[in-house]
Simulated scan of single mutants.
Amino acid sequence: MNRERLEQISALLEEVVEGNTALVSDVRGMGAELSALRGDLDAGAGFRARQDLCRELVGPLGAIEAMVDRADLGDTAVVAGHLRGLAATLRGVMTRMGAEPVPVVPGADRFDPAVHRCVEVVAPADSPFPAAPPHTVVRVVEDGYTLDRRQILPVQVAIQAATTRRQPD
């Protein structure tokens, strides 16, 4: 009787192993299908994002081309007006795409490497904020931007240098 019972248990174990093997195979296949589907979705979303950006840039591109074709480039006031309008248009495009400028207060904000990229160190004598402590942002060189609250470009800044100490004579 023990032998019969062992054979029954052995047969049941074989069925369980076969079932688990088939289940593992099915799960692996579903994982591969899911990965392919995720790739298709990512590609579609990427295309739509690029398509939206291109559509947004058509207007500013046309404005640049019209300015070059029709504007009197010798008149600096006219050129400056066109450039200001173009800058406003491009800022509008970025806003519609969800990008926001990173706020910076020169003379008050301390340099933060997570938000800023230092591109210049300014001596206090040459600084617009000579009394600012060292490592204070004294000028924004180029705006930085966030997208969905994540930084996409750091703010490029000039920071206040530490005052140099005179060497004893």
Rank of each mutant, 00 (worst) to 15 (best):
D52L: 14
L90I: 13
P103E: 05
A80S: 14
G85T: 05
V78K: 06
G62V: 04
E56R: 12
E65A: 15
P103K: 01
G81W: 03
L61K: 06
H82F: 07
G85A: 12
P60G: 12
T89I: 05
G107C: 04
L61T: 14
A63K: 11
V104S: 08
L83Y: 04
L90E: 07
L53P: 03
D69A: 15
R91F: 06
D52E: 15
V79R: 00
D75N: 15
A63C: 07
A80H: 09
A71L: 11
E56T: 01
V78Q: 11
E100D: 05
A71G: 15
V79H: 04
L61G: 13
A108L: 09
R91H: 10
C54G: 08
L73W: 02
P101H: 00
A99T: 06
R55A: 10
R96K: 11
I64K: 01
D72Y: 04
A66C: 04
R91Y: 04
V105S: 11
E65R: 14
G107M: 02
M97P: 00
M97V: 03
P101L: 00
D52V: 10
A77W: 06
E56K: 02
V58C: 05
L57Y: 10
A71M: 10
R84F: 02
L53S: 11
R91T: 09
I64L: 15
V104E: 08
G62A: 14
P106W: 07
G107Y: 01
L90W: 04
A87F: 06
E65D: 09
G98P: 00
L86E: 02
G62T: 09
G62M: 12
I64R: 00
D72S: 11
V104N: 08
V93S: 10
